[in-house]
């Protein structure tokens, strides 16, 4: 059983909602990431979603775009991200880590080499925004062979018929994109989310986590009542951007505080 499945089954047994939290590796500077991840764990995060910076992050809103840009100033790479995970694993062998990013850096690394290196580093899953089910086939074979979960997205525009196919391929958890748009957008409609989740929930036994547009404890609470878990990202990345001049520990504490607030709310 994968680390993600173990962790999520345990959460389910305890009747706990799943909290997934996203930051960009290397944002706002490389030394900030490790203490931030550790603080997030302390404050009750279940799954770390670690953003791999890319020059052209097409699905991101302005806040996370800037996070990618800040990280790239320091030449943060996919290789460097695996190195960071390796370091994190020295003191934490239990918290699942999913890398979230775009196809091209993985293509450049090579699917086979990447899957092997990621598994060795202690990565548990991969979410590649621009690899929908039709395009992820070759990469997924390599991920499967190395015990890594490929995390699939469901969107408000996904038909039930298509969602069925996606659910059949998925492992770990399913990520429901709560709105049409980019990360951090401000028009999340809870009633809409409920309607879609009711339909999708019947298709799978995997946990459904909802992300995009969850900005504060109140929204997180409202969404957590409908889903198995929530994903937060922009709210953390925004804080990290504001604290560019602060120390790594100060950044880690501030991010931890937000994570803790959401944890208590859901």
């Amino acid at each position: 059983m994968s680390r993600i499945q173990q962790h999520l089954s345990a959460a389910k047994e305890a009747g706990k909602k799943i909290l997934v939290a996203y930051v960009v590796n290397g944002d706002p500077f490389p030394e900030a990431t490790l203490p931030t991840l550790q603080k997030m764990v302390e404050q009750g995060v279940d799954i770390i979603e670690l953003g791999v910076p890319f020059s052209d992050p097409m699905a991101e809103g302005p806040v996370i775009q800037k996070g990618h840009e800040r990280a790239l100033v320091h030449h943060t790479s996919l290789k460097g991200t695996l190195q960071l995970v390796k370091t994190f694993r020295k003191t934490n062998q239990t918290t699942p880590i999913v890398l979230m990013g775009y196809a091209n850096p993985v293509e450049r690394f090579g699917y086979h080499a990447f899957a092997k290196a990621a598994a060795e580093a202690g990565v548990d899953g991969l979410l590649t925004v621009d690899l929908p089910p039709e395009e992820v086939v070759d990469l997924k074979k390599e991920l499967d062979a190395n015990g890594l979960d490929n995390i699939f997205l469901l969107a408000p525009t996904t038909t039930v018929e298509r969602a069925k196919k996606i659910a059949a391929l998925a492992s770990g958890f399913l990520y429901y994109v709560s709105l049409k748009g980019v990360t951090g957008a401000g028009h999340l409609d809870v009633a809409d989310v409920k309607q879609k989740l009711d339909a999708f929930g019947e298709l799978t036994d995997l946990p459904l986590c909802v992300g995009f547009g969850i900005k504060d404890p109140a929204t997180a609470k409202a969404i957590a009542e409908l889903a198995d878990g929530v994903v937060i990202g922009s709210v953390l990345v925004e804080k990290m951007g504001q604290m560019e001049k602060n120390s790594a520990d100060e950044i880690a504490n501030a991010v931890g505080e937000i994570v803790g607030g959401i944890r208590r709310a859901i």
Binding site: M58, A59, A103, A155, P156, T157, K180
Partner: peptide, 20 residues
């Protein structure tokens, strides 16, 4: 039928755009 020219082409977009 998959939108490819040999290994090139395809449809590398986020799930939201697939339906469109």
């Amino acid at each position: 039928s998959e939108g490819r020219f040999g290994i090139f082409g395809g449809r590398f977009v986020s799930e939201t755009l697939i339906h469109a």
